[in-house]
Design a protein around this nucleic acid. Structure first.
Length: 297
DNA sequence: ATCCAGGGGGATT
DNA sequence: AATCCCCATGGA
């Protein structure tokens, strides 16, 4: 039995840890005093930020750096995105935001659960799945449950207690459609094939597929469009860009491989979140705009 | 094309 | 306290 979890320290490279972990892309980070406790794959670790330093316990620098996207060039991406004037207000309140690199299967399930739901509920459901079906991991004060691998989630009262609602049957079907080999092959495909394959899964439409491409498969040009993004880009995108595919094509043209970061910045900004604001309360100021704008044929 | 599944969070009444 | 609105997917 190993005793003390390994520690590490690395430069944050401009990352805002709190902003990134609480930006709604990841569901397994919890506040613990000045730090965050994170469950990532088979590790439970604790990480905190002091200025431009990240100090962690229970993981190694390589794993942490990759998970946090420290090598993803977020600073350069922001500089390129700032050339688009309409994006500047969103960029202003999301300095230090990065796109995480999550576990593929966990990310797929989490965003599968996200359909017609909200962040608080998704968080509880992901945690519930881990507690009910995952393996206990960690040691000392760093304990948790790994997310259950495909096949480990079983129908029954324990699953019912997680209250997935109509998502439960689809989650079980999703699990049947996928195994470790399938996931490994998916990761190696070109992006358009990845997207098509993801969308062929039960309960996975364009939005969920794009979330998985962005948050797990490292496809930085993916641009998931939920209702908040739809509102945010109204007025930026040309009036013709109304459908999911047209907004997506516009984003690809406007932002290229930086579209994913643009999306996450817009998401926080549109919800009234961003630096020092948290993400919990979403003011309804845009609902009027939304009802005023009708889809055109 | 429209309705619903099942639920919870937030806002309005 | 009751009621309305919201939300992404798939099947009727």
């Amino acid at each position: 039995m190993p005793g003390v979890p390994e520690s590490c320290e690395l430069r944050a490279n401009g990352l805002d840890l709190a902003l990134t972990l609480e930006s709604g892309q990841f569901f397994r980070a919890t506040v613990r005093g000045e730090a965050y406790q994170v469950v990532h794959r088979e590790q439970v670790f604790e990480v905190r930020q002091e200025g431009n330093r990240l100090i962690a316990r229970g993981t190694d620098a390589a794993t942490l750096g990759r998970f946090l996207g420290l090598d993803s060039g977020a600073t350069e991406a922001r500089a390129r995105l700032a050339r688009v004037p309409a994006l500047r207000p969103a960029l202003r309140v999301t300095e230090g935001l990065a796109i995480l690199r999550q576990d593929l299967w966990e990310c797929l399930v989490a965003f599968h659960c996200s359909t017609v739901s909200n962040i608080g509920r998704i968080t509880r459901q992901v945690e519930g799945l881990a507690r009910a079906f995952g393996r206990p991991i960690g040691e000392g004060d760093l304990r948790g449950w790994a997310f259950p691998r495909p096949g480990a989630i079983r129908p029954g009262p324990a699953l019912g207690a997680i209250r997935l609602g109509f998502r439960e049957r689809r989650l079980l079907a999703l699990q049947e459609a996928v195994d470790e080999t399938w996931l490994a092959r998916l990761a190696a495909l070109p992006v358009e094939e990845q997207r098509g394959l993801l969308m062929s899964l039960p309960g996975v439409g364009p939005k969920v597929a794009d979330c998985v491409l962005l948050f797990a498969l490292g496809r930085s040009g993916a641009f998931p469009i939920d209702v908040w993004i739809g509102r945010a880009v109204r007025g930026m995108a040309p009036p013709g860009a109304r459908s999911y595919d047209r907004i997506r094509a516009w984003a690809a043209q406007a932002f290229g491989d930086d579209a994913g970061l643009a999306q996450q910045a817009l998401f926080l900004w549109a919800r009234g979140g961003g630096k020092g604001r948290g993400l919990r309360q979403a003011p309804r100021r845009t609902s009027r705009i939304r009802s005023a704008a009708r889809p055109s044929p």
